[in-house]
């Protein structure tokens, strides 16, 4: 399995250690990991704000960068959703559409890849006794259909995944939405935080959601720890002594 890692903008800058943990996880399940250094942004911020021309430019760039990859894996449900579910419809020529559909067929969110492609359902026991809340990022859940895989993996590492009534409700990030309508966005995060059960850590497959929830929890001085799914799963493999992921 040759995997090209697409770390995404937020991954590169705010979840670098989690992305490194993604590399470790992928190698752990036998993948040969590469990092095409010409990668930039998938174009989702432009696409979701209605800037179709700009999104198309970023899509063209991304399909070229990953043209030769056997698999493309992203530690982000929403960026994976952009590539897999939106690129085809965004295409302006038959050629672009063919390239988009070809890339979509090779693209996976990290936990999805681990379970569905690498056939991994057991990672380790490094999360034994940890009470974990899993936030379903909307695009992982709805555009990719990723819902059981992260939970299965967390449980396989010994974590107790605690029921959370709002686990499938949007955190209010929504990319530029969070900055254009900050008051409503924050109220959405508040509902998530106010319904959160007593857990040791909150995790998600999406960095954007984690920034939103942790940023709001920080502003409200709520002592809730957040960690990216990739870091938590690597801790599941390597135990508590594993290199600590960021956030």
């Amino acid at each position: 399995m040759r995997v090209a890692l697409f770390v995404t903008c937020l991954g590169d800058q705010f979840f670098a250690e989690a992305c490194a943990d993604a590399v470790r996880l992928l190698r752990h399940v036998g993948a040969e990991v590469s990092f095409p250094t010409d990668q930039t942004c998938c174009g989702q911020p432009a696409f979701n704000s209605g800037h179709r021309r700009e999104a198309l430019r970023m899509m063209r760039h991304t399909t070229q960068v990953f043209a030769d990859a056997e698999y493309v894996v992203l530690p982000s449900g929403s960026c994976a959703g952009m590539v897999r579910s939106m690129y085809s419809g965004l295409s302006d020529t038959d050629e672009a559409r063919a390239a988009a559909e070809d890339l979509a067929a090779r693209t996976y969110e990290l936990s999805e890849f681990l379970v569905s492609v690498a056939d991994c359902e057991e990672l380790g026991d490094g999360l034994t006794g940890h009470r974990v809340a899993y936030h379903h990022g909307c695009h992982a859940l709805r555009e990719l259909g990723v819902s059981d895989q992260p939970v299965t993996l967390l449980r396989s590492c010994g974590a107790e995944v605690i029921e959370w009534s709002a686990d499938r409700e949007c955190c209010g990030f929504g990319g530029t939405f969070s900055a254009k309508l900050p008051e409503v966005s924050a109220a959405m995060a508040d509902h998530k935080l106010d319904t959160l059960p007593d857990v040791d850590v909150v995790t998600s497959a999406d960095g954007g959601c984690l920034l939103q929830l942790s940023g709001r929890a920080g502003r409200r001085e709520l002592p809730v720890p957040f960690r990216h799914l990739a870091s938590l799963l690597w801790q599941g493999v390597a135990g508590a002594e594993a290199p600590r992921g960021s956030a």
Binding site: F35, T37, A179, R219
Partner: peptide, 28 residues
């Protein structure tokens, strides 16, 4: 304005000490 909208309601995110790009260059 994107940043002011963010910090109006939330703490600014803490950046990773090194970017992933840097970590990759040094070897993981």
């Amino acid at each position: 304005p994107v940043l002011s909208g963010w910090v109006q309601e939330r703490d600014a995110p803490s950046p990773s000490p090194r970017s992933f790009r840097d970590l990759w260059r040094e070897g993981i």
